[in-house]
């Protein structure tokens, strides 16, 4: 049996809509933003309309059921049902949209902006492009001492960081649920694995208030750790972050 055109159109639209959601949200595990999905669907609808109506027969077939619903006396019951449901649905939609919610208003915010080339940390101006972890070289030169440093870094982490970033470093510590933006998940390949150690040093030392202008508004609650930790403690913690997650920091060499 041939599927009527109107149903075809509806099926195509629903298919595309759920296709987007399934592909992005489930298969790729990267949610499609609702604002974008609305615009996508608007133009997909326009495209479907174009394909179904460029000739007269197609249009007539597409419109026929709607016309029949409105004009055909034998469809009176259906007509009444639809004429009740449609305004109700529109009203419900408006109600849901206008209902005050607890969600904070949308903000365009770059959480991890490009770092400045230099920053003032511990009273010195450091060049973030050249800065290296002073302990990193020990990884090869003196593995034993390196392990010790990692242990010390772990202690610092457990004492200070795990409340938010979690004892598994997965950004899911006891306080994580209360924070927005959420604490970073260091296990994710998209976070510290993509960054240089100097970037981590900069973010840890200067915290939320040290974010540059493009990251406004500065709602990150990351503390300014240079006020609480010693410089080598931060470097050791960074060693621990990479060691525990098994990632390696992005290197200086050009790929």
């Amino acid at each position: 049996m041939r599927i009527p055109k109107l149903l075809q159109a509806v099926l195509v639209l629903a298919g595309v809509y759920f296709g987007f959601i399934v592909v992005f949200d489930v298969i790729l595990d990267a949610v499609i933003p609702s604002s974008l999905l609305v615009m996508y669907m608007f133009f997909v609808t326009a495209g479907v309309f174009m394909v179904f109506t460029y000739d007269e027969e197609g249009t007539r077939e597409l419109v026929a059921p709607i016309k029949a619903l409105v004009e055909d006396p034998s469809k009176r019951v259906w007509r009444n049902i639809v004429f009740v449901i449609v305004p109700l649905a529109a009203g419900a939609g408006t109600y849901v949209q206008m209902q005050p919610s607890f969600e904070a208003p949308l903000e365009l915010r770059t959480i991890h902006p490009a770092p400045p080339s230099t920053a003032k940390i511990y009273g010195k101006r450091v060049n973030l492009l050249k800065l290296e972890n002073p302990f990193r070289k020990l990884e090869k030169e003196d593995p034993e001492q390196f392990r010790e440093l990692v242990e010390e870094g772990a202690a610092v982490y457990i004492e200070n960081c795990q409340y938010c970033h979690g004892d598994k470093l997965d950004g899911n510590g006891p306080y994580a649920a209360g924070l927005n933006p959420t604490p970073l998940n260091f296990q994710d390949v998209g976070t510290i694995a993509q960054l240089q150690e100097s970037y981590l040093f900069w973010r840890i030392a200067t915290g939320g208030p040290g974010l540059p202008k493009e990251a406004a508004p500065w709602i990150s609650s990351m503390p300014v750790w240079q006020n609480f930790l010693k410089e080598d403690e931060i470097w050791k913690t960074i060693l621990f972050l990479y060691d525990y997650t098994g990632h390696s920091p992005r290197s200086w060499g050009h790929e």
């Binding site: 490009a114 770092p115 080339s117 230099t118 060049n127 492009l129 050249k130």
Partner: peptide
Amino acid sequence: HNALGRAPELAT
């Protein structure tokens, strides 16, 4: 003069 390298780096 930024990390994108449109102009020489001024850090040094």
